[in-house]
């Protein structure tokens, strides 16, 4: 199996998300960065499939040069090849621009490596939450695509996938080449080993510049939703608070 996983570098804010003065970006000055959780699971899934069936895992990210950090992390947990589709990092690309740049990169990678049996995306990106890049890429390549996937089973002729729905799941059965949007929970990603970490420092990254297409969605500003301030009632500072909690349960008609 030749698998391509597309990942995004996102900031990891704590108790609140701050916005820069001009309102155009998340203020990341005191923040660490991570791979979006759905995509971290997609990388893990790809590595597991290749461990079982052979092949290789290529990880692609579109972003500024700093996104190399996320590619090296993927290297430390077992991915094999790395592609950075580099943007100037000044503006976030919109979904159509991102999908177009990824489509062009996939076509050029496949021209030299052959067709990817599977392309995995996250169900939606953690930050912009646009719900469409993976689908746009799949449609433009005319490949079957299902989002919301929480289980993949690679068979001889078919790839079976489960999509989470209320109270259960739906079963899809696709033929390669296929595309999936992965959700966190499909697996528990491994932590990098010391050996993996060392190897990741030497991983070779191919860098391509992102094509320039025009954005159709223009950001005007980011802002936080209004929040009600609540007055917290402290019910106690030790186990004796149980009595007051039970009173509260009675009040809420839960006892």
């Amino acid at each position: 199996m030749e698998i391509l996983v597309c990942v995004k570098r996102v900031p990891a804010p704590g108790s609140r998300i701050n916005v820069t003065q001009d309102g155009l970006a998340v203020d990341t000055s005191n923040l660490g960065f991570t791979t979006s959780p759905h995509e971290e699971c997609a990388v893990e899934e790809a590595v597991r499939i290749v461990e079982e069936h052979g092949g290789s895992v290529t990880v692609l990210t579109l972003g500024s040069a700093l996104s190399e950090e996320q590619l090296r992390y993927a290297a430390s947990v077992g991915a094999n090849k790395f592609v950075l589709v580099e943007t100037d990092g000044e503006h976030d690309s919109d979904a159509q621009q991102t999908a177009e740049a990824i489509r062009e990169t996939v076509i050029s990678l496949e021209a030299s490596h052959g067709i990817f049996d599977l392309i995995l995306f996250g169900n939606e990106s953690a930050d912009s939450s646009g719900y469409q890049v993976g689908i746009r890429v799949a449609v433009s390549l005319d490949r079957p695509m299902v989002n919301g996937i929480k289980n993949i089973d690679v068979g001889d002729t078919q790839i079976t996938a489960h999509r989470e729905v209320d109270n259960g799941y739906e079963v899809y059965s696709l033929k390669a080449p296929a595309v999936f949007g992965i959700k966190e929970g499909i697996n528990l990603p491994r932590y990098p080993t010391m050996k993996g970490r060392l190897a990741s420092k030497k991983a070779e990254i191919s860098t391509i510049s992102a094509s320039a297409s025009v954005a159709s969605q223009q950001r005007v500003r980011l802002h936080r939703p209004e929040e009600e301030t609540v007055e917290t009632t402290i019910l106690g500072n030790d186990a004796t608070a149980a009595v007051k909690i039970a009173d509260l349960l009675e009040e809420l008609d839960l006892l």
Binding site: V19, Q217, Q218, V220, L222, H223, P225
Partner: peptide, 9 residues
């Protein structure tokens, strides 16, 4: 957690 105002031409 965050809102984005956008215009679409």
């Amino acid at each position: 957690s965050l809102l984005e105002d956008v215009t679409v031409e």
